[in-house]
Structures are given as structure tokens and as C-alpha cells.
């Protein structure tokens, strides 16, 4: 198992009241899987993704990533894990606005201490994978939404992480561009990458081999995407 979550709880205290964003989540994800996490707004999808991505530490429960117990690591150790093991594709791209595509893609490698020359070569490779080799010196503001998302994907790929995590990767895109991005994910899945993506769109989740449904911080469904995606939802 690449990811092993056992009885993960994440609680927030807001104004003296406890909010259980994750309420005893236990899941395992193997290497090479493509999993969608689906659920209604406020069901805990982003919280779960943050925990899986080591951006957030659970209140309780155990989390093993690639065999390492990450639940008890400190901030800098988690930063190291994020840097080496995880490729993030954030909901609104989260690119550095003043830097070029190339510099943005190089960023995870900068913090891994890779030499400038090698960094550049690997970033160019990653941009080629998302077919953006002709937009390397453009800044995010000079790119379309779909191109920005592809830069974000290239950045996630550049570090060759064990796990790609995407939060609403098509959320900000029109359907044609969204489709283009989903195709890219299919290619990455075929190439052997492990993919976890958060979405509220059943249509997208249905195309994933596996989907996990959250509701009020609990897992309420786990199975083939085509089944779980439409669970409790009126099929259009």
C-alpha cells in the first residue's frame, strides 16, 4: 500500500464548537491506482486531500505514506516528504505569478537541492509531457486557463513523486479544456503514476477506476468509479 489511513480524525474548534471535518476515515490506496474522492460541499474532501498531501496533520489516527509514519512528523520533515513524495495540482493552479512556466515547474526541484542545470533539463522534460514546450518563457498571466493547469501538472510531475494529488483539477476550466486535462490524467495513469483527485463532478469521478465517497467526514462509499460516482445522485 502506498497510502494507509487508519481512523483519521481532523477536528476544528470554531467558537467553542467542534467541527469534525474528518470523522474516522480509513482507506488504503495502492501504487498505480487512480482514485477519485467525491462528496458534497463541506463533506471533507479538501481536508482529506490536505492530510494525504502532508499539508495538514490529523488530530488523531495513523497515516503511513510509502511505509513511513507521517502523522508524527514535524513541519520541516513534512516539507521534505511533500517535496519528494507528492506532486500537487491545486484547485486554482497556485503558480507564482512573476515567474515563467519553466521557473514554476523547477520550483519543487529548487527545494530538493537539484543543481540549476539538471533542474532546467527536468523541467523542460515535464513541460514536454504536458505539450507546453512552446510556452516555457511565458508567465502565468500570459497563459490560458488550460495552459496554466498544464503548467501546474508539469510542476507536479517534475519531481517524479510517488503520488499525484489534484484538487478539483477541472473546476476552473470550460468543458473542452477540462476534457483535455482528463485525457492527460488518463495518459499519466497509463504511464503508471498514482493519482488521487478530488472532485464534486460525478461525470469525472465515473471515469476513474475507483472512487471514494465522503459524507460529513466519513467514507460512505468505496468502489469502481462508475458505481460510486452516481451513488445517491440523480443521474442526468
Amino acid at each position: 500500500m502506498l497510502i494507509e489511513l487508519k481512523d483519521i480524525r481532523r477536528e476544528y474548534t470554531v467558537g467553542g464548537e467542534v467541527v469534525r471535518a474528518l470523522d474516522g476515515v480509513s482507506i488504503g490506496i495502492a501504487k498505480g491506482e487512480w482514485v477519485a474522492i467525491i462528496g458534497q460541499s463541506g463533506s471533507g474532501k479538501s481536508t482529506l486531500m490536505n492530510v494525504i498531501g502532508c499539508l495538514d496533520t490529523p488530530t488523531s489516527g495513523s497515516y503511513r505514506l510509502n511505509g513511513k509514519d507521517v502523522a508524527r512528523m514535524d513541519d520541516d520533515e513534512l516539507a521534505g516528504i511533500r517535496n519528494r513524495e507528492i506532486g500537487f495540482i491545486f484547485q486554482n493552479f497556485q503558480l507564482l505569478p512573476r515567474e515563467t512556466s519553466l521557473a514554476n515547474v523547477e520550483l519543487p526541484l529548487v527545494y530538493r537541492g537539484v543543481s540549476a542545470r539538471e533542474r532546467r533539463a527536468r523541467a523542460i522534460d515535464a513541460l514536454k509531457k504536458v505539450r507546453l514546450e512552446n510556452r516555457m518563457t511565458h508567465k502565468p498571466t500570459e497563459l490560458s486557463g488550460g495552459q496554466r493547469q498544464r503548467v501546474a501538472i508539469a510542476r507536479a510531475l517534475a519531481g517524479e513523486p510517488s503520488l499525484l494529488l489534484a484538487d478539483e483539477p477541472t473546476g476552473n476550466l470550460d468543458s473542452a479544456t477540462g476534457e483535455e486535462i482528463v485525457r492527460l490524467f488518463e495518459e499519466l495513469h497509463q504511464a503508471g503514476h498514482t493519482l488521487v483527485l478530488v472532485t464534486h463532478e460525478p461525470r469525472l469521478a465515473a471515469r476513474c477506476p475507483r472512487a471514494i465517497r465522503l459524507s460529513d467526514g466519513q467514507v460512505v462509499g468505496d468502489g469502481p468509479g462508475a458505481e460510486v460516482a452516481w451513488q445517491g445522485v440523480a443521474r442526468p
Binding site: G53, D76, R82, N83, F88, F90, Q94, L96, P108
Partner: peptide, 8 residues
């Protein structure tokens, strides 16, 4: 962003 991508 920098911290999320692994800056200590």
C-alpha cells in the same frame, strides 16, 4: 506555495 512544494 513555496512551503507546500517543500520549502523548509
Amino acid at each position: 506555495i513555496r512551503k507546500a512544494l517543500g520549502a523548509k
